[in-house]
Simulated assay, not measured.
Amino acid sequence: MKARCLTIKELTEAVGGGITPRMVRHYHQLGLLPQPMRSPGNYRLYTQTDVNRLQRIVALKQQGFQLNHIRHILAVELEADTTIETRLIASLQQQYRAVMQQMSQLRQTASALESLLGRDRNCQLIQAEVLAQLKLLEVETKVGVGQLEKLWSGLDANVHAHPEDFHESLQYLLPDLCDRPVIEQDLISKLVLACGDVSLASFVRLHPEAIAASREAFKSGCPIIADISTVAGALDQTRLIHLGCRIETLIDNPHITTAKEAELAFWQERKWREKLQQLEKGCVLIVGYAPSVLLAICEAIAEQQIQPALVIGMPIGFSHAPAAKRQLMQTSIAWITIEGTLGGGLLAATALNALVESVIDKPECHCYLSKLPGQQNKAK
């Protein structure tokens, strides 16, 4: 929930100590208080930070300090706070870089293992030859994995003789998904293939009713609302038309094609927020770029302004996107998301297309209803 801003009168009442609006305006002129935000009607709006700073000014005055001394004290305190903050950020950046370096090394190891384990049947002669060479080297696994890249030279000639069997390759690489419905397994496999990263499977999250809600919505010809045209363009229009589902775009501007553009447009133009609040009940929302769109959707759901059948929330971003996904997973409606910063329009569209395909190809499938009773209220 956003903190409510205070008017200048409410600010003085919150601080007390005999402070008046006239004194506050004087402190602005002296530079003791920063200039506040302004409302659309040009009224001053204050935050808790302003309350804290003004309380500090009052306390220093009561200790006998003159205003020019107070300004110097506040400047020194701010500089000290900034120095501590700068050091903390630098420390966190150093830790982050160290983690990323470790991840990069692990990613190289994983890539080498994927090149070996992900061989389909037609490539297993190459796989056998590599394993034989590793055995001859008589090295432990950790060292052997590091040597794999050196062994590929001259062994990849057979890959030109046939197309890759993705389904067979994934059987050796994906985590065990046997406890999940067949439709969900297919969805996760398609998401992994869309980005080429097997680790994505560990971050996919589905509401327990997501598959059931999506199938019911698609069969009823629900409208599909994408955040921008790039996402809408990646949807399986042929199958959706067959089901009677029309595709709409929330930020209806074909020139907006990136997450940055979508985020700015949604903030700058009120009409997109107003359009969001007027969406048809039972629609399916798909967000692949703008985290603020997903945040607004969660807020509108909480305030019962909209009632979508399903939200596929996979926006891009490093702060707002993870927060938006966490909020989505706390809503009462059905949802599908990818935890953390991973996401994008292609993955969001892939998720929807996989569900639509399952409705048409497996209309009588009920695998998603086979969960234990105790699992019905838990999200994966």
Score class of each variant (00 low, 15 high):
residue 338 I to C: 09
residue 272 W to D: 02
residue 344 G to W: 07
residue 344 G to E: 05
residue 309 A to N: 05
residue 232 A to C: 10
residue 329 M to C: 15
residue 341 T to P: 03
residue 295 L to W: 04
residue 299 E to C: 05
residue 302 A to H: 14
residue 235 L to D: 05
residue 310 L to C: 11
residue 341 T to Y: 01
residue 322 P to D: 12
residue 260 K to H: 13
residue 339 E to Y: 02
residue 253 N to W: 02
residue 291 P to Y: 08
residue 347 L to G: 01
residue 339 E to T: 09
residue 237 Q to K: 14
residue 339 E to Q: 14
residue 301 I to T: 02
residue 295 L to C: 04
residue 300 A to L: 07
residue 225 I to M: 11
residue 231 V to Y: 05
residue 335 W to N: 07
residue 230 T to V: 14
residue 246 R to Y: 10
residue 325 K to A: 12
residue 277 Q to R: 12
residue 324 A to P: 06
residue 265 A to W: 03
residue 265 A to N: 09
residue 278 Q to A: 15
residue 223 P to M: 09
residue 290 A to V: 04
residue 255 H to R: 14
residue 270 R to E: 15
residue 227 D to W: 08
residue 237 Q to I: 10
residue 288 G to K: 03
residue 239 R to L: 15
residue 341 T to M: 12
residue 337 T to Q: 03
residue 240 L to T: 01
residue 335 W to L: 10
residue 253 N to H: 04
residue 309 A to Q: 06
residue 302 A to G: 14
residue 349 A to I: 09
residue 260 K to F: 12
residue 261 E to N: 01
residue 274 E to L: 13
residue 348 A to C: 14
residue 286 I to E: 03
residue 342 L to M: 09
residue 222 C to Q: 00
residue 266 F to I: 08
residue 325 K to I: 13
residue 341 T to S: 13
residue 259 A to W: 10
residue 334 A to V: 08
residue 304 Q to E: 15
residue 273 R to F: 11
residue 230 T to C: 06
residue 298 C to W: 05
residue 230 T to L: 15
residue 232 A to P: 07
residue 224 I to E: 02
residue 261 E to K: 08
residue 236 D to P: 05
residue 310 L to Y: 09
residue 312 I to F: 11
residue 311 V to A: 10
residue 313 G to V: 10
residue 331 T to K: 12
residue 269 E to V: 00
residue 304 Q to F: 09
residue 329 M to G: 07
residue 296 A to H: 08
residue 338 I to A: 06
residue 345 G to S: 14
residue 344 G to P: 05
residue 333 I to G: 04
residue 324 A to E: 10
residue 346 L to H: 09
residue 299 E to W: 00
residue 243 L to K: 01
residue 289 Y to W: 00
residue 338 I to P: 02
residue 312 I to P: 08
residue 268 Q to A: 13
residue 319 S to R: 07
residue 297 I to G: 01
residue 348 A to K: 01
residue 255 H to F: 08
residue 252 D to S: 12
residue 309 A to E: 08
residue 349 A to K: 00
residue 226 A to T: 04
residue 329 M to L: 13
residue 286 I to A: 03
residue 332 S to R: 11
residue 261 E to R: 01
residue 305 Q to H: 13
residue 250 L to G: 02
residue 276 L to Q: 03
residue 305 Q to G: 09
residue 226 A to R: 00
residue 312 I to W: 08
residue 294 L to V: 07
residue 298 C to R: 03
residue 348 A to Y: 06
residue 348 A to M: 13
residue 325 K to Y: 11
residue 229 S to H: 03
residue 219 K to S: 15
residue 314 M to N: 04
residue 235 L to N: 01
residue 299 E to M: 00
residue 230 T to H: 01
residue 345 G to E: 04
residue 318 F to T: 11
residue 342 L to G: 00
residue 284 V to K: 01
residue 232 A to I: 06
residue 219 K to H: 10
residue 242 H to C: 10
residue 347 L to F: 05
residue 277 Q to H: 07
residue 260 K to A: 15
residue 342 L to W: 07
